[in-house]
């Protein structure tokens, strides 16, 4: 299994990663090698095997509908790169 340049770019798009040309080439090689390696899972007959999402089985973990204190807007916004009017400020998103 080898990943083409286009596939690498497509995945980078999904993951919102800006890659340099050099990275595209390197990731194409490295990810292809990793995919070759993980292909050993194809050897196994997995018919009838249930998937495991969790290591330890817990079920029905819920909380009561109780209001807890929120952050102050100052704390909420403290780590943001840019703020305005007590909100997070980002570059304009074109009005749809």
């Amino acid at each position: 299994m080898s990943l083409s340049r286009d596939e690498v770019l497509k995945i980078a798009g999904l993951a919102r990663l800006a890659l340099s040309e050099e990275e595209v080439a390197r990731f194409s090689d490295q990810l292809s090698a990793v995919l070759d390696y993980v292909a050993r899972l194809d050897e196994l007959d997995l018919r009838g095997i249930e998937p495991s999402v969790h290591a330890v089985a817990r079920t029905n973990v819920m909380r009561d509908d109780v209001v807890m204190p929120s952050l102050s807007p100052t704390d909420a916004l403290f780590n943001a790169a840019a703020t305005s009017e007590n909100q997070f400020l980002i570059q304009s998103i074109l009005e749809e």
Partner: peptide
């Protein structure tokens, strides 16, 4: 919401 300076979240 949208302002001249950018969008607010």
């Amino acid at each position: 919401t949208h302002r001249d300076e950018g969008s607010l979240v």
